[in-house]
Design a binder for these strands. Sequence first.
DNA 1: GTAGAAGTTGGAGCGCGCTCGAAGTCAAGC
DNA 2: GCTTGACTTCGAGCGCGCTCCAACTTCTAC
Lengths: 140, 140
Amino acid sequence: MATTATALRGISDVAEETGLTAHTLRYYERAGLMLEPVGRASSSHRRYSDGDVRWVVLLTKLRGTGMPIRQIKQYADLVRAGAGNEERRLALLEEHRARVLGQLREVERNLQAIDHKIAVYRECALERPAAAGSDQRNAA
Amino acid sequence: MATTATALRGISDVAEETGLTAHTLRYYERAGLMLEPVGRASSSHRRYSDGDVRWVVLLTKLRGTGMPIRQIKQYADLVRAGAGNEERRLALLEEHRARVLGQLREVERNLQAIDHKIAVYRECALERPAAAGSDQRNAA
DNA sequence: GTAGAAGTTGGAGCGCGCTCGAAGTCAAGC
DNA sequence: GCTTGACTTCGAGCGCGCTCCAACTTCTAC
């Protein structure tokens, strides 16, 4: 069952896979976000395991929802500590989730005001046929 | 019809009304986000008109959807320039709107991954009856 | 008049999350 | 051997959006 070859990847492979830069990957590691120091080749070049990469992908989801580095660090610390603190991990994630949902709602609320403004400008554009070329807008 | 008394407000009133700090209000003004320099009392204290306040409120909506100061400045410059550039204002707002919608979708997508993680931890919590007090979680 | 609160300016400082530069190491190809 | 290029470390730098400080003026209450 050695079919899943699980090739260890270099930092630029992982950068490409995750959408982060190599700089950022090193930064995350320095910041203590990795579960364990990333493995090294004899040349001291980093060699990421599949698990490392999956973890980094999770980090990108957390960052992508605005979780601060400091809090991701807390979560990583909990996971690194091993079994027994699952409730605290869950609480941390749920708190984050609630915060994100709140932010989403607020952004939507603010966006509605902007939508209204847009609607006003559209009406305004209808009233005045406008200067030449008003129709070359991209109707995206 | 002079019933709308339109009292001019001091900076701390406006801070309270808008949720910004007085510091931030001054900062926005310095950054060129106001349509015109805010009026002053004889004492050189700022006196915000209703229009000023409405504009600041709009600024908070733009900021609240993540529009950078630099771009808000562009929008303010257009409005300040007066009639004739409504299309550019509209385009600016629509671009922003599209960007925000994209970001919302991506945050939601990332959040789904986190939700999945949360679900896993919840199952995990069910399997092991866990240490005392595991049921005092808020069932939000 | 006088104390204390609240406003003014200009510029410095901060927290965040990267981002970059410099100098060095290592492996592969010519 | 030598070059090229991808990697390493450490620390500095940056862009953003505030946030605060210091020194000063002015309003308000007593």
